[in-house]
């Protein structure tokens, strides 16, 4: 693997050059938190964030999007709406890249989802290694401290400069055309290894007390437990744990019709399995009426159903759910460790 290096003093120029040629989005500070948004000048871009409130999934699966527009008379006419303006996502942590990689597989499976895939193809992803760990993160324990794919470039802050790993040909030309990279020396490359292991070490303070490979089996034996009722008694059914999760992808589809009752559009918006009506069907029946059954479902999705599909947990350890859940019952580390304790 060939590594490049750009001086920190050249970073602003790199970002400015990108802004001149592309729509650039990245992390910005707001009221002590971090959010992805449009970057109009290099000073706005923050690279030393710990974790954003909402993950980058919003760029590929927006909170609300139009799938097609329709006219219902004289004859039904449908015009698909596809968005694919090229853009750069500057500053994505490896755990979020891992989540995007999982989403890519999910949305390409079966009937591929053109709305997601078009947006995804239009994106260039510039990753960045974390320099800070959010209080509830456990990505190191989830094997998401580093990723080997899913980025075009990957930056690591080594003090006076950034090491840049090239992840794709597009990334290579982006770097060469917009920055002044030089090859990284062997020592500099070693520094990256050291920095990565130090930050992982900090993150490893949180994690599972047992091998995560055992989670599917643990869940297979836990379906009927009273445990779930106990844990879910405080659940507000607010869906926050789903909406802030980079690996949750559920959505609801609705038709919005204009007042002329002829024109309209079909939209989809974020949904979440913790919400009361998530499993309600047209006849009025709700397959997951109780809080406990919905709460349990989320952990079964993360640790069993999707594990079977992805051969990995559908959780990358960002800790967003844990820090956003008001009664603090959404944290996978706490939950699975407790479940395991309960087993004994």
């Amino acid at each position: 693997m060939k590594l490049r290096l750009i001086e920190k003093s050249d970073l602003d120029l790199f970002v400015q050059n990108l802004i001149n040629d592309y729509q650039v989005d990245g992390v910005k500070r707001k009221e002590g938190s971090f959010l992805y948004g449009s970057i109009k000048s290099p000073e706005e871009l923050c690279l030393d964030f710990d974790c954003t409130v909402i993950p980058p999934k919003k760029y590929f699966l927006p909170p609300e999007e139009t799938l097609f527009q329709f006219t219902s008379s004289p004859a039904l006419q449908v015009t698909p709406v596809m968005e694919s303006n090229p853009f750069i996502l500057f500053g994505v942590h490896p755990y979020d890249i891992k989540a995007i990689n999982q989403m890519d597989r999910i949305f390409a499976r079966g009937v591929p989802d053109p709305h997601y895939l078009k947006r995804r193809e239009a994106a260039l992803i510039i990753g960045v290694d974390p320099t800070k760990v959010a209080p509830r993160s456990f990505w190191a324990d989830m094997g998401a401290a580093t990723v080997s794919e899913g980025f075009d470039l990957m930056l690591t802050d080594i003090g006076e400069s950034f090491i840049v790993e090239i992840g794709s040909n597009k990334g290579r030309s982006l770097l060469e055309q917009h920055a002044k990279p030089r090859p990284a020396t062997r020592n500099e490359a070693r520094e990256r290894v050291g920095i990565r292991s130090r930050i992982s070490h900090i993150c490893k303070k949180r994690g599972f007390a047992f091998p995560k490979r055992e989670i599917p089996t643990l869940l297979e034996h836990s379906w009927k437990k009273f445990f779930w009722e106990e844990q879910a008694s405080k659940c507000l059914s607010c869906g926050t744990c789903n909406l802030v999760c980079p690996t949750c992808y559920c959505f609801d589809v609705q038709d919005n019709i204009d007042l002329d009752l002829v024109h309209g559009e079909r939209v989809r918006r974020w949904d979440g399995c913790l919400l009361h009506d998530f499993a309600k069907v047209a006849t009025g029946e709700n397959f997951r009426e109780t809080r406990a059954s919905r709460y349990r479902h989320r952990f079964y999705r993360k640790g069993l159903y999707l594990f079977r599909l992805l051969d990995d947990m559908a959780c990358v350890g960002c800790g967003r759910c844990a820090s956003a859940c008001l009664p603090d019952i959404a944290d996978p580390v706490n939950l699975f460790n407790k479940l395991r304790e309960d087993e004994k």
């Binding site: 009221e31 909170p63 059914s237 869906g239 926050t240 909406l243 918006r269 974020w270 919400l275 009361h276």
Partner: peptide, 20 residues
Amino acid sequence: PNFPVCVECKMAENICVFEK
């Protein structure tokens, strides 16, 4: 809707006021 305001609040990318 039969879901709480938190859903739309997250979709609007607000910072939860409990944090403030």
